[in-house]
Design a protein around this nucleic acid. Sequence first.
DNA 1: CTCCTTATTGATAACCGTTATCAATAAGAT
DNA 2: ATCTTATTGATAACGGTTATCAATAAGGAG
Lengths: 153, 153
Amino acid sequence: MNRNGLGRNKGWHRIMHGRGFRVTAPREAVLSVLEKEKTHLSAKEIYAKVIVIEPSVGLTTIYRTLEMLAEMGVINRVEIGDKTTRYEIKSNSSKHHHHIICTNCRKVIDYSEFSEEEKKLFTKMTKNIEKKYNVKITGHNVQFFGICLDCEK
Amino acid sequence: MNRNGLGRNKGWHRIMHGRGFRVTAPREAVLSVLEKEKTHLSAKEIYAKVIVIEPSVGLTTIYRTLEMLAEMGVINRVEIGDKTTRYEIKSNSSKHHHHIICTNCRKVIDYSEFSEEEKKLFTKMTKNIEKKYNVKITGHNVQFFGICLDCEK
DNA sequence: CTCCTTATTGATAACCGTTATCAATAAGAT
DNA sequence: ATCTTATTGATAACGGTTATCAATAAGGAG
């Protein structure tokens, strides 16, 4: 257990190191926050939580770290239509999922209980697209829009 | 054929009027541009094309008009990850489609040749989600990410 | 057609998320 | 312990979008 309460994640050290990145306190703090939250936070929201752990960290560093983690494939950028980029960690516990977004309050529900049928069809769609358009597909993003229970009144 | 070359679209007049909106030259010009282009333009790009038709129109009006058209359901907002909102018209000729986005050059391919299987599954997924999460689904957005032929070198 | 109400417009400034700059700092190899 | 250089934080700048407000014009009433 290091100073940030980041216990089992020494793995990051190796991954970062392997890519030639240095392991720093701000980076550990950002990972610690994302690991705990598992929800869709904006850079500002992450910043607010990070400075509790490491008060000297600047907002710029948050943006830079998020940029780096996204490039490393450790986190996903999530756009839910509220004009800011949000981030979610791709841990082994949180699988690939789709998003259900309330167009009124912008609440997000993660949807990951895919049926075998759904999984197969997405695989098939991906292959079809690759063949038909001669592209290499690296991922997909699915959003369902609607009005959540709370906003329905 | 009115002054903007907008012939068969007098329908907009009725729709706008019905909602209590006035039919103005800037609005007709924006619709004219979107109708012609059918691709994913940013507000600035639309502005550049509009001022050819109506030189006195300001950028602010473009934003306001796009906001209105989106609210009316006449156009879609499209996010392709290049930090600007893009717009596409929902004409009867351009059906519902998904997007294939090159993560390198941000080119977008529309994908609308859905198989019956795909259509059925999306309908089923929508119903499942509505039941399971108690929400009213109004639409969905699907993006496939990859590297296009040109960027593959 | 003319008048009148009020939605709409355009110029400008403000806003806000994100990024560039740059001297100071510190990770980690030697 | 030293040294190279990636990283940092403060600040300013940037770019897309929105608020402000007086001037304009759509379109209904007469």
